[in-house]
Structure formats: C-alpha cells, structure tokens
Design a protein around this nucleic acid. Structure first.
Lengths: 338, 338
DNA sequence: CCTCCTTGTGGAATCGATTACACGGAATTG
DNA sequence: CAATTCCGTGTAATCGATTCCACAAGGAGG
C-alpha cells in the first residue's frame, strides 16, 4: 500500500506539497497539482487515516453504544445514526452492550482507546465508571433514548422521546374499550425510560380514576423472556389484569407468548400494547397497538448534537414526542362492530 | 489524556520501559514494573490505539460490510460476528450497504482507509471496484452468506449456508400438503444466494415431477416492497400459484401484506414460506414456515477464517447446512385435522 | 584479577501523515 | 533601480507508541 512519500517521489515534489494538494490548500501551482493528482491516480494512493488521526488528533469517527442490537428499535436507531453521520463526513463504530453493564463498559473503553471523536450512548445501567471517566476526560458525549442522572453526567445533552402524551392516549384508548384492570411490564428501574414510562402510566390511570396497584407493575429487563415471566405472574393473580402494556417491543412479544401458551386470546381475554413500534407489529396475530417513536429524527438529532459538541459548538438536549398507533390488540377499533 | 511520556516521567523511567511493561516484555525488574504500573493507575493512562496501530501496522479491528441492517438475519449475523471477534481480541466496525452497490463501495473504501486488519463481506452486487482493489492489495478478506465469482476474487474464502437440502424438504412439505403450483420470489440475479436458491427450488420441483415456469419466478431485491410487487404479479396471473416461497424474510413479509390486502388467506388461499428464520415468524398470523440458517455458527466460522488469514494462517471455506422449520403458513401440519 | 556474558535500561529511529517556518525567485511599489 | 511583498515549495518537527541498538553494572569462569 503506497504512502505519501511514494506519491511525492513519483510526482517529483516533497511530501508537504502532496499533503497540500490532498487537503486542497490554495497555494499550489495548477500544474504541480495536476502532477500530484496524476501520481495519486497511478498508484491508487489513499491517505492512511491512522497516521492522519495521530497527527490531527481527530478520527472523524463516532462511537455508538446501544443496549441491544437484536431489538429492532435500536437497529433502526443505529441505521439512522449512521446515515446522519455519513452525511456529515463521520463514520460510526457500533458497540452492542446486550443490556449488560460490563459489556457496555468494555465498549466504552475500546472506543475511547481508539480515540473516537464523540460518544453516543443509550446506557444500560445506572452509572458505569468508564462513562464517568470519559465525561471527565472531556470526551464529547450525548445520550440517546435513555440517560443517566448525577455522577457528573448532568451536563451531557440528552436526545430522547417523551412518551407521556402518547401513554395517556393509550390509557384513554384502553379505557374507552372497557379495560379497567391495567398492568405494566416496566424496564429496569436503573434506566430512565424504565421509570419514566411507569410514572406516565400511573398518572394517566389516575386521570381516569384508576389506580396502579403494585401487583400490576412487573419489572422486566427489556428482553423477551422477562416479558413472558412477568406476564405469567400477572395471569396467576386472583384478579389478573385485562390489559397489559409492555415498556418495549421485545417484552411485548414475550407477553404474547405467555398469553397464547395459556390458551388465552388477545385482545378478547387480555389486551396488549407496547412501547416502540416496529414493522413486525403489523404482521403479528393480532396486529399490536404500539407507541411509535420518531426513530429517524431521534438518530439525526443525536448526531447533530454530538457533532456540534465535537466541532466546538454548544449542543442542546432535544425532546421529540411519540404517538399512539392503534391496531387490534386492545380490542376492535372504535366504530366497528366486534 | 495522558500519553506514555507522562507515565514515564511519573515513574522515573524512559518511555521504552513503560512500553515494555505494557506489552509484558520479560526483561523488566519487578520493582520497576511495579512503579510503572502504579503510575499508569494514578494517571488513568490508556495506550493510544491510533499511535500503536501506526507503529505496528495493525489495528486489531475487522470490517463487516452487510447488505441490510434492518434485516434481522443480518443483525443476528452482526451480533455473532462481534461476539466471536471480541473473544479473539478484535473489534468490529460495521458498514451497512443497504443493498446499494455505491454504499457498499463507500464502506469498503472507508474501512480500507482506516486500515482494518481484515474484511468480512456479504456482497450486494456482482463485483465492485473497491473490493477488487482490496483483494489485490492483499487485504485479508472473507465472504459471508453471499459471495462473488471471478474478478480475481476466487481465492477469497466463503463461509455460507447450503440451503439445497432444506429447500428440497420444503418442496416435499408443500407437495405433501397438496400444493402443485409453486412460485418463488428470488433475490437479485447478481447475488449468488439469489441464483442458488432458485436453482435448488427448480431441481426440487423437478424431483416431484413439477416444472417451474418463468411466470412463477419473480425477481426481488431482498426488500419487503419487492416481495409485495412480485406477489401482486403472481396473483394477477390467469393461473396464480398456490404456494409462494420467498428467498428472504423481508420479501416474505411483503408477500404476506399483498396476499392479505387482496382479502386472501394464508395458507388457505396461498401457502407461504421463507428463507431465513427469525424470531418474529413465530408471532405472525399465521406463524411462517421457514428455512433456518445456523446464524451464530456462520458468524463464528467467518471470524475464525478471517482471523486465520489476518494472522498468517491458511483459511478454508466453510459450508454449513440449513434446516426446514415447519409452521402453519403452508397448511396444517401432518397428522392434525384442519 | 581480567574477560565475557547476562540483565535492565535508555536513546533514538520509525510508522505516515500535517504544518510552522525558511527560503529563493518573481512581481510590485516608491 | 532598489526595496519589499508574495507565491510556491521544501525542510524538519511533531503526534504516541514500538523496538533496535548501545551501554553500564554485576556475575561467572578461567
């Protein structure tokens, strides 16, 4: 693989001149530029990004640490992040934490070692040491979807979706269809989205004169299995819920499995709804009512904020809003007969 | 961020000694080692991977270029690749080609610029210039799932799944359930998996005394929309097929949409099956019969082969086999009554 | 006791780029 | 016509590591 000095030799100039041509510095005579470009083409020369990074102290790469690649919400997020970054001339290096704090830490460390220009994180747990170290070291950093409070991380901008209004709409929808015993499968208490969705759900219930008993709050971990486990507990109660809201799509899937395994039907016996809408929800039996996040916009906003930080501009937190998409999993839509 | 010279100063030794401690070179006196390690801990020093890469000419990073992140098959593959690579001490940088040749080229170029140690590709098209350049430049390279013949790429090991036997099993299954007019939604002719799956399907039909008419071959592009389009054409034929086999999961989804949009039912009016099994197929209405690839093993084998190449050992092509997973989308399973 | 080898350490070259500074020659100005 | 500015280019320092070579001190062997 040719280096800059090979190009210089072939073009009969110094490496400095080659570098100037490559970074189109103004003061290079047109014919010299021509000669250099010809040499570059002849040799198929491509600048070594590693060397360039060492010298300029920037890699033009962003790190993205997500909680679970197998979750369609996150892969859609990853895709939009990559698109947005590419438009701005950055690459994205993805790390999958698999909802495991130690893996999350591994990726943050690796990304820092590789000196990525900025870090986009959707944190799995409360506050990992590496993230604090990164923040303290002044690495540009932005949280997406979930975030962490305290631990010196309060200055980190957050790009997220506010689901309160949509959750209220969902509760109204369930109420209108006659459901009164509502339950929620929440995410881990350590995650902000875990707590926030429960709070919003509880307030919405109160608005309709209902209470959310502790029996009807089950803690999951955003994975399908936990959804199944919590649902099993719900259905074993003396007064099982007649509607279950899962705080993410995978747990909804687990819930559906459990309901079906007991020979019950959705929505006739138990209504089901999920946070995070994904294409597959259209094709399940029945199609699942969900709260959709504007994933593309989320990824775009997160990259914009992070790149602002990286390039020395101030960045702001962004909150987008989610919306309810009603399908058949909570009962027949209004206006139609069963 | 502290550099090696800061550690050296604090420990009262030279940078050479610090480097020796870090790479645990034998000839360092225990107490010196101790002092260096203490300095490292005090400063929270982490070696700069960029500088190290420049000097050693290896990045300990592998590039993975996949055709479509939104396709669950590929995200599962990406996950297993990352797992396997991490175990061997490598990072993975993922590029999503989105089934677009020019994006694929962009990613190959970017990864080469970053001097990744090896390249894992599931090619989108016939033979892109950058890939040939990479192969010519001697970059270790392995194809996964799909591959390219000719163009100087014949030496590149291929890690893939052979679906012939499973496709034969599928045709037998369809035949047993009374289906005789079978159709296939194939992938792009430029991809090997596209052609291979059609060939296997055709031979299997012949085995059962059936012929695959050209009317019953529709070309898709591995995306949901194309599945829908092709299915629309099938259903508009004077003699529409009574079973449709989609060569990947997204096209199967599109097919299902179209069938349902016309008020037809799966499997009563049209049977449906797909290549690539994914968790969601359990939850669709009806659950979809599919041919499952051993995705985890595929990713693992691909990384093993690539790392062998990277570390100077010879690597071999690997072919695993797929298996049929029958569900209800082709008709009631044998032995049960409708 | 002198030589030779081993062990632990430091100095300096190196990887491939970028960029501050210097310099020669041409062009501009008074 | 001399002085000054500007333009295009080259030399060399630099980024942060690794590693070859040199060298000093200490131990072993004759």
């Amino acid at each position: 693989m040719p280096a800059i000095k090979d190009v210089a030799r072939r073009a009969g100039v110094s490496v400095a001149t080659v570098s100037r041509v490559l970074n189109d510095h103004p003061s290079v005579r047109p014919d010299t530029r021509e000669r250099v470009l010809a040499a570059v083409a002849d040799l198929g020369y491509r600048p070594n990004a590693v060397a360039r990074s060492l010298r300029t102290d920037q890699t033009r790469a962003l790190g993205l640490v997500i909680s679970d690649v197998l979750n369609p919400f996150f892969t859609e997020l990853a895709r939009s992040v990559e698109d947005a970054a590419r438009e701005l001339g950055y690459s994205v290096v993805i790390g999958n934490a698999d909802e495991r704090p130690e893996l999350q830490d591994h990726h943050v460390r690796t990304l820092m070692d590789r000196r990525i220009d900025g870090l986009l994180i959707s944190p799995t747990d409360g506050g990992s040491p590496m993230m604090q170290a990164a923040a303290r070291a002044g690495t540009p950093m932005v949280f997406v979807d979930r975030w962490i409070e305290g631990a010196g991380l309060d200055e980190v901008p957050v790009v997220r979706t506010d689901g309160r209004a949509a959750i209220r709409d969902l509760v109204a929808h369930l109420y209108a269809l006659g459901h009164r015993r509502l339950a929620i499968i929440s995410g881990p208490a350590a995650t902000t989205t875990g707590r926030e969705r429960v709070d919003a759900f509880r307030s919405a219930l109160r608005e309709f004169g209902l209470v959310l008993s502790n029996d009807h709050i089950g803690q999951g971990d955003f994975q399908a299995d936990s959804g199944r486990r919590v649902t099993a507990r719900f259905l074993g109660l003396p007064h099982p819920p007649d509607a279950v809201f899962a705080a993410d799509n995978l747990m909804a899937l687990g819930a559906m499995d459990e309901i079906r395994a007991r020979g019950l039907r959705v929505p006739d016996d138990v209504a089901l709804a999920a946070f995070d809408d994904i294409p597959w929800f259209l094709h399940t039996d029945p199609p699942i009512t969900a709260i959709a996040q504007p994933t593309g916009a989320l990824g775009h906003a997160a990259v914009t904020a992070l790149v602002d930080l990286v390039e020395g501009r101030p960045a702001e937190s962004v909150t987008l809003s989610a919306r309810l998409v009603t399908r058949r999993s909570c009962g027949e839509p209004e206006g139609s007969t069963p």
